[in-house]
Design a protein around this nucleic acid. Structure first.
Lengths: 337, 337
DNA sequence: AGCATTATTGAAAATGCTTTCATTTTTTTA
DNA sequence: TAAAAAAATGAAAGCATTTTCAATAATGCT
């Protein structure tokens, strides 16, 4: 049998240090926590003992004594790590600054699994929860609220007594760009959607509708495609062999690329015969040819902001706004005229 | 000031439940932990009390009493979440099964930052550490070994008394494909590299060299490019305006796409004038045109395996192999003839 | 020098659980 | 029906900290 290191070395606790330094454990605790009441000389003695023994305070015991864990939980859907990767980076960077540790959980199977996860998270006494999800219904939110733990919703415009939210104002973003097209007399516009990001797609649709309504027009041109890339590609190849539009809007990068490839397959020239905009651009929308016009979404910032707000909530600091809309920048690339 | 829920509701502990059910806390503990010595009738009484009070065992206190936390730490570089996303999915799925929670940490600034993170992780008494990194030097590994915590290295072929590793045998993979090309008389082969994934690039080079050496030839055709996509693209546009090769190998998907675009810019036809293979394929290597021949790398599996091995290490179970090489599948696509 | 302050330190309780060992209750057996 | 065996329960110690409050040591002041 392959052996693996066992944990039989004797534990070095605060007692060991106290004994080594010839002080009480209360004093050691004070030194660890940088209390200013301890005499410089004994402080030094204790620090030497700590180094000599290689003592590390036990964060679990601290957590118990302090009734807080300085850990927060992040729950994300188990797909699309692509975008979330940036969010996580931002979040972790801020967490590091504030000395929070972050536990990661995935969930996609609806509110029941989500409730279970939240329940477990609460057992682990995370100080707060950051929830990345844009497919909650209002009832789901109700359910989550009952847990009564500080929460930050990411990419989901919802807030309450115990929750703040950080999201990108897709509605306004899309409204502005669609308005411009309508102003130029272009109104054969369709939106590609799948079942994956209901709330944000809904925002995209709302923004489009708003622009249409201002012109006294109706909008309801949605193309429902499969979520998985290859099926959606096949579906779109079929679709664009018989349909033409002036402008196609997609939410995710893979959808936009699927449109690009499906059109190429059908010899539909982009942007000459049809224009294409991806709402949530990524590095990959810049790698395909033509590059895809899109909004540059501040993934990193939304992560770091969410974490920053969480730290404020946990410290009962003043939170100016409970719903934070992030800015976006439209980047015109080769897929539009 | 925006108010946020405070934690002033009184805590419900194992004592509350014991009192409610009219039993001792020892009995409640037994019920929680599904001990079989407690009488069915009292068990039921306790369970009712638990539900009535909405009691949740405090995982921190459990951690302290049991001297283990059932939590493991995952440390990843703060870039390339693209690929790592799949790894994380696999890892979390297995973690869920074994009831482990996973704390996430990022690190790129070398071994010092890494040591600091590991130190913090140890303070938090994680039972083990899974370390995704392919840029460690042997000294770095030494340093990490001193922490004496069960570790699993991901994408890094290293093992020791306290460490196992899970990785993909890029050397063999590349060897096989390069050999095939050499057999067909194609030997103007170059490898694109940047500073990002030293160990795995090294493996790719080794595999290539091996194939060359078997033919009595020497190999040393490396193109060093910048890590960042746009700079590397610009560099490659320049490069391919004056250089031609028969076959280009890249490690990451973005590098392969950069080559693709740079060649297109220079009117170098792929695969007719030059062939292109990406070692670590992704969904995006299938989205560009032509699609890029590549190895399908089992990201999900490597994550789930790493976690599974970790659970075995922590339970002192038998571990047949301490270094686990994962299989790969070569997928020929449009970028090769 | 002697007293009043103030600065340091330590003892012990509290945090919420698990577990051992002793005790009590129940069941079995003669 | 009593003794023996087995099952169920509880008391208390232990896990590694923080923190309050009391005790002690050091300092300042007259």
């Amino acid at each position: 049998m392959a052996t693996v290191a066992k944990n039989d070395k004797k534990r070095i606790t605060i007692y060991s240090v106290a004994h080594e330094a010839g002080v009480s454990l209360a004093t050691v605790s004070r030194v660890i926590n940088d209390s200013d009441v301890v005499k410089e000389e004994t402080k030094k003695r204790v620090q030497e003992a700590i180094i000599k023994l290689g003592y590390r305070p036990n964060a679990i015991a601290q957590g118990l004594a302090l009734k807080k864990t300085t850990s927060i939980a992040l729950i994300v859907p188990d797909s699309s790590f692509n975008y979330i990767g940036k969010v996580i980076n931002g979040l972790l960077d801020v967490a590091k600054i504030y000395k929070y540790s972050v536990t990661l959980h995935t969930s996609t199977e609806g509110i029941n699994e989500m409730s279970e996860i939240v329940d477990n998270v609460i057992k682990s006494h995370a100080d707060g929860i950051i929830l990345y999800n844009d497919s909650f219904s209002p009832q789901d939110i109700e359910t989550l609220n009952e847990f009564n733990v500080p929460m930050v919703y990411l990419d989901n415009c919802y807030s309450s007594d115990i929750a703040c939210s950080v999201y990108i104002d897709y509605k306004q973003a899309v409204y502005e760009v669609v308005k411009k097209y309508l102003d130029n007399g272009i109104d054969d516009i369709v939106i590609i959607e799948d079942r994956k990001n209901p709330i944000n797609i809904e925002e995209v649709v709302k923004g489009t509708k708003k622009a249409f309504e201002e012109k006294g027009k109706q909008f309801d041109a949605l193309i429902r495609i499969p979520s998985e890339y290859h099926s959606s590609y096949n579906y779109l190849v079929e679709y664009f062999s018989t349909h033409k539009h002036q402008l196609v809007l997609t939410y995710r990068d893979s959808q936009a690329i699927a449109v690009l490839n499906a059109c190429s397959e059908n010899n539909v020239k982009i942007p000459d015969e049809m224009e294409l905009i991806c709402v949530r651009g990524s590095r990959y929308t810049d790698m395909v040819r033509p590059q895809i016009s899109s909004f540059e979404v501040p993934g990193y910032d939304s992560g770091s902001l969410a974490m920053r707000i969480m730290t404020k909530m946990l410290n009962n600091e003043d939170i100016p706004q409970k719903e934070l809309k992030l800015n976006y920048v439209y980047k015109k690339k080769g897929s539009t005229k």
